[in-house]
Structures are given as C-alpha cells and as structure tokens.
Design a protein around this nucleic acid. Structure first.
Lengths: 202, 202
DNA sequence: CGCAATGCTGAACACCAGTTCAACTAACCT
DNA sequence: AGGTTAGTTGAACTGGTGTTCAGCATTGCG
C-alpha cells in the first residue's frame, strides 16, 4: 500500500545485500511461482516455503512484497531488453522480433506482470514505462528495416505493426494456456506470409 | 478444490432460489468487483461487504466461491453469445464482430475469466469450451461473408483472422488498462484498412 | 391456526497473508 | 580478542479467506 519502496527512508531497518546468494534464490523461486501459479500466488510466505527459507528472511531482503515483485520484474525486463537488442542486431531483425513475441516463457511473465501492474499502483509505473520503452524500440526497428515499404504494401505504420504482432503473440500464449488452440497455426501462417511479403528474402 | 459443483449431491444442505433478487444482486456485485479489482479480489466476503449482505448469505446461494464465479461467467458468456449472434445477423457482420472485439467492457470480463480459468481447474473446462465455441462461430461467419476473397486477398484463413482480431482487441484493452496507448490508433487504422480492402462497401 | 419452506444471521473453525522485532549466530576486520 | 556487521530465526500481531451450522424470522399454504 505504501508508495515508497526500495529507498532507505527509515533510520535503522536493516536490508540484505544486493549480491547475496539467498537473495538471488528468492528471486528465482518467486519467478517460478509466478510462472506456475500466477502472480496472485506469489506471497512472501509461499515463496519462503518453496525455497526452504524462513518467511522473515524474505522480508530481510525485500521489506515489502512489492519490492520482491519489482525485483523479479526488473530482472525479467533486463532479459527482454537483451532479447530485443539481439533482434535489432541480427540479420533478420523483424523475424527475430516476431520470434520474441512468440516466446512462451517470456510472454508468460510479461502477461503476469501486466495483470499485476493493473492492480498494484506501487508497481504500475515501472512496468508501464518499460512497456512504452519496448514499444518505442520496436517502432524504431520497423522504421529502420522496413521503411516506406511497410506503408506501401500494407497501409500499416510501424507502431501499428508493433501493437498487432505483440497482441497476436500474447493471444496465442493466453489461449494455449487456457487449452484453446483452434486457429493458432493459421494465425501464425498468416503473420508469416505477411512478413514474407514485406521482407526481401536473402 | 472440489470437482463437483452446481449439483445436489449432499443430502440436506439448502440452496437459495435461482430467481431470487438477492442472488441477482450478488452476481451483479461480483461482476463489478471483478471489473474494478480483478478476479483475485472477488472473495465471497468482499462481495458480501460491497453488497451490504451477510457473508453467509452469499454461501447460501453459492455453496462455493467457484459456483459464484461460474454464475458470473455464465451470464457474461450468454451476453457475448447474444452479441455475436447480433453481429452475424447484421448487414455488416465482419465490422460488427470487430466492434465486439473492441468492446472494452466485454473484453475486461473476458480477460479476467481467461486468467481465472488458467488457475482454477474447476472452472477451466467451461470457459475453454465457450471460447472454442465462440471461435467456431466466428470462423463460420468469416467463411460465409468473406469466402474465397479472404484467402486471395490476404493469404489468411478465417480461423487465422479470428485469432488475430481477437488478439488485437485484447491487446488494446490490456495495454490501455496499463496506461500504454502508443501505437493503438495506428493498429486500429491498420486493421480497418485491412477490413475495407476485404469487404465491398455498400 | 399451525406448519413447512424460504430467507437470513451470528458465531465459530482453520487457514494463509504481510509485517515487525528482538534476539541469536557466524564471520570478519583490526 | 573484541567489537562491528551480516545473515538468520521465532514469535507475535493484525487481518483477510472459505466454509459450516444451528437457529432465527417471515411468509404463505394447507
């Protein structure tokens, strides 16, 4: 509920070291819990239990639950950033980005954090800022690689393409998790035909 | 946790009437809570509090929380079915369906129930069955209205189109809830250009 | 009028949650 | 060796949750 986090406003309260092994373990286990049971199941006590740790120890490294969730998010966001940077540097940037959107493991976390951000004001700003930054990077990528060809061939702008590909990727993931896969192969085929038409084959 | 619901396996336990006003109020309030605070906040006690009712009364009408959530889902699903039927009967069925996908109020519930279904085995089957049925209806609609033109113009199948439009609609909603809207207008424009090219204007 | 059904309440049980705090232990630095 | 520091624990407080159940009140029906 508190708006302040990750700061040291209180005079005395001790906080565990940033580079502790235990701290890393806690972040690992929390990410695993979020993946398997959803963000709502990621309570400090549950994490402690699954990590074989004392609940208080979790709060020694992460004073509040929001601090813990934020740490998991930041690590995941850094990984996403690296994947997008790699896509940008590859010789097939657009297709690499499309593979990024289709990465289930990444999308799983991403979807959980969107849901989380919508319900947790303390975390929301960071997540939405990162989402905006990713979007901007993707737009730049499409502009650089596809240029005018995109608008001419499809009437789409780079920004529109980014929203659509991200949306399709998330839809494929969420529906598959639900157990619904009808139309998925066809949607993938459709997008890839689209990309084929846009990109000169090497 | 119990696999059986909505049945009367126990010999004596009383359950409130299906057509009770109080019951309808409970369903109303639950839907509202889900919309405003997410499915995870839809506890029977919280619903009772917001409805000004005794917690036990909620369990009088809905023995388990899953029963309550299922009732909300079923009402929402029926409304979705009606909207799709209306789209099918309209003189612009494809555009009506696209508007359905862009309906924030409907999508909000839909997204919550997908998330819910992924985590609650007792409810999952009904939700995934309904999602599959909606998909089938949409595919039939696209086949009937667009026929061969769709594949010729875009290389997409009706099933692929259904997945993509649903996905874009959900993405627009989720990102907007997060506070990210960059590229949204462009994505909408892109889809509508696409539909314009597919459908002969009257 | 009495009686059964229906709507509703209060209390209780067992659980899980976040968070705090004082105190224990081990390591390390000088 | 002595003292500071970091890691760790146990217990406690507060509050939310699902669920049950016996019993109250009211209504309507025979």
């Amino acid at each position: 509920m508190s708006a302040l986090s990750s700061q040291e406003p209180s005079p005395k309260r001790r906080i565990g070291a940033e580079k502790s092994e235990t701290r890393a373990l806690i972040v690992d286990v929390t990410e695993q819990v979020i993946r398997e049971e959803g963000y709502a199941a990621a309570s400090t006590r549950r994490v402690a239990l699954r990590a074989g740790l004392n609940p208080s120890l979790v709060h020694y490294y992460f004073p509040s639950t929001d601090d813990l969730l934020l740490a998991v998010f930041e690590r995941g966001a850094a990984q996403s950033d690296a994947m997008i940077a790699a896509a940008l540097a590859s010789n097939e940037p657009v297709r690499a980005l499309w593979q990024f959107f289709r990465d289930d493991s990444r999308t799983a976390l991403s979807v959980e954090f969107i849901a989380l951000a919508i319900r947790r004001p303390a975390i929301r700003e960071q997540i939405s800022a990162h989402a905006s930054a990713m979007r901007a990077q993707q737009i730049a990528l499409f502009e650089r690689v596809l240029g005018e060809r995109l608008a001419q061939a499809t009437g789409c702008s780079p920004a529109g393409l980014s929203v659509i590909l991200a949306g399709v990727g998330r839809a494929l993931f969420m529906e598959a998790a639900l157990g619904v896969t009808s139309g998925h192969d066809e949607a993938i085929q459709c997008v890839e035909k689209w990309l084929d038409a846009l990109i000169p084959s090497p």
